[in-house]
Write a protein that binds this DNA or RNA. Structure first.
Lengths: 206, 206
DNA sequence: CACAAACTACACTACACAGTGTAGTTTTTT
DNA sequence: AAAAAACTACACTGTGTAGTGTAGTTTGTG
């Protein structure tokens, strides 16, 4: 629960090794399925060293989740443009969104994180936060489009949910659930195009 | 994995107690978080009795998952009608779908099952099967509407995904993830109405 | 070099849990 | 009443795992 104070160690070449090994383990075996002994072994490090850097399994897990969620910020931002065609803009947004959520790491992370929400709701907030970041751009885009009179949207947040839902149901959940079929980029792009078409049919003023 | 032969016991009043207790435990604590000792205790039954009825924890879990998934079949069926308005029909379908997936038991089950997909993909198939059942009606409805010329749908399966996605993103996932806010029936119905409106805007020939 | 931080090896505690074995008791069926 | 089935109490095995304690070794730095 606590995080207390970060133990700043002058230098610690093994720290990175631990993080990498733990990431691999957590993402492929889940939280419960990962043992600290195995992490240590995979990192070529003594178990004690693992605990010198991370006070507990929970802390290690958190550190890794946080690290991966940072990458969510790498998603390109999209500002609303008065000039460019709506469908082009929305297509770009949708593609960025789809690419981000279907990235291998994000996908695996989602599995682990989702699985652990159930038992440990303490972890939900900060993670949900990162997930919310994925929609921020979208929502403000819809707001702008609404103000600009090109979109007839009552509730931008709901609109964002709808847009995301259209994409995720096809490009995200099937892969996350079944685990097997990695949705091809062709299918993914088609899903985005369909979503844009449907969305604008409904919300665009024309 | 195995299921071997069902041990048919003449009468076993305690069997039901075990199932009920185990359901409660599994659905609130997850698979890993549930211990057979606690199940026995909660059922007011000796641990041995639990094992007399179910050879393993896995088997017990499976039995319970199967039992709950049976209820999916309780969802009312909707046949396409040439006469009735499309939006009315689709609204009914959407409502049934939304009600089914947001039912307390189904929701809790989904959490547990989804969490366990990750570590144990063996369990995926039969469960995915039940989930697929939820869309069957929808897909055949779209096919009928297409044949009847009232719906301009290229791919009924994708259309079903879209329709489901529109609803789930608002009425299902937020509750499943955050765990906190139980989506109100008002919000749920609104989500269905919005989905129908958007869907028909795009696919209805008019 | 000398000092401290980083690290190792390894033994060890403590616990939780799946599953079994058994001897004996209650309940149901015939 | 007698046999069979259902059930209990409880001890017990085995295993996996989080986390600690310690004594000693390596490595970077002033």
């Amino acid at each position: 629960m606590a995080a207390a104070k970060e133990k700043k160690r002058r230098k610690s070449p093994k720290r990175q090794a631990v993080i990498e090994a733990a990431t691999e383990e957590f993402l492929s075996r889940g939280f419960a399925g990962t043992s600290m002994d195995r992490v240590a072994e995979a990192a070529n490090v003594s178990k004690r060293t693992v605990y010198d850097h991370f006070p507990s399994k929970d802390a290690l897990f958190q550190a890794i989740v946080d690290e991966i969620l940072m990458h969510v910020d790498d998603m390109p931002t999209h500002e609303y443009s008065r000039e460019q065609a709506l469908d082009e803009q929305l297509l770009a947004i949708g593609k960025s969104f789809a690419d981000t959520i279907t990235a291998k790491k994000f996908m695996k992370l989602s599995k682990v994180v989702i699985a652990n929400f159930i038992q440990s709701p303490e972890w939900a907030p900060r993670t949900m936060n990162a997930y919310a970041r994925l929609r921020r751009d979208m929502i403000s885009f819809f707001k702008s489009g609404k103000k600009d009179g090109r979109l007839q949207i009552r509730n931008p947040e709901i609109a964002a949910s709808q847009f995301c839902g259209l994409i995720k149901e096809i490009a995200f959940w099937p892969e996350l659930m079944a685990g097997q079929k990695p949705v091809t980029s062709r299918e993914r792009n088609a899903a985005v195009r369909d979503a844009v078409a449907m969305f604008l049919d409904h919300y665009a003023t024309d």
